[in-house]
């Protein structure tokens, strides 16, 4: 569980950064003249927290296979989309008029979700490379000791 929380926390910070970027790009594209107050700084954090909820709920003690994990990740991504869309647009009555924004936000969430995993994988790749170097040294040392 501790490791899972750590992974979730790492994902949260990457998400917040990417949400900031997505808000900046989408804002410029859709409503470039809109102005915000200081509360705008809180939104990436709130979206980051909302995005972390499915991951915390769907924690499994079982060691899942790659296939099981992929299915779980897809479900998790759609849960995040539903939660954030509900949080952002739930209070509006004229939903059909908001479809372009909803589609834009949904695509942004998908892109962010994939990028969070890509960045996480890149960090893991670095760890794996370090471990490979340590493994090579270890094996070399053991073989040397056995031959002496």
């Amino acid at each position: 569980m501790k490791e899972h929380l750590r992974t979730q926390l790492g994902g949260f910070f990457i998400s917040v950064t990417l949400i900031n970027l997505a808000m900046f790009i989408l804002g410029l594209m859709m409503e470039p003249d809109l102005q915000f107050g200081y509360e705008a700084f809180a939104y990436p954090l709130i979206y980051g927290i909302i995005g972390s909820i499915p991951g915390l709920i769907m924690y499994s003690k079982k060691e899942l296979t790659i296939r099981q994990t992929l299915i779980r990740e897809v479900i998790q991504m759609f849960m995040i989309i539903i939660l954030i869309i509900f949080f952002m647009f739930g209070r509006f009555k004229n939903i059909p008029d908001l479809i372009p924004q909803i589609v834009g936000v949904s695509i942004s969430i998908m892109v962010i979700y994939v990028l969070v995993h890509v960045f996480g994988w890149m960090i893991d790749l670095k760890t794996a490379n370090i471990m490979n170097e340590e493994l090579m040294k270890f094996q070399k040392n053991v073989s040397k000791a056995e031959n002496e």
């Binding site: 899942l64 099981q68 994990t69």
Partner: peptide
């Protein structure tokens, strides 16, 4: 022989 990151968040 080698260690690599796995898709399911493990190695």
């Amino acid at each position: 022989t080698s260690i690599k990151p796995s898709l399911n968040g493990r190695f």
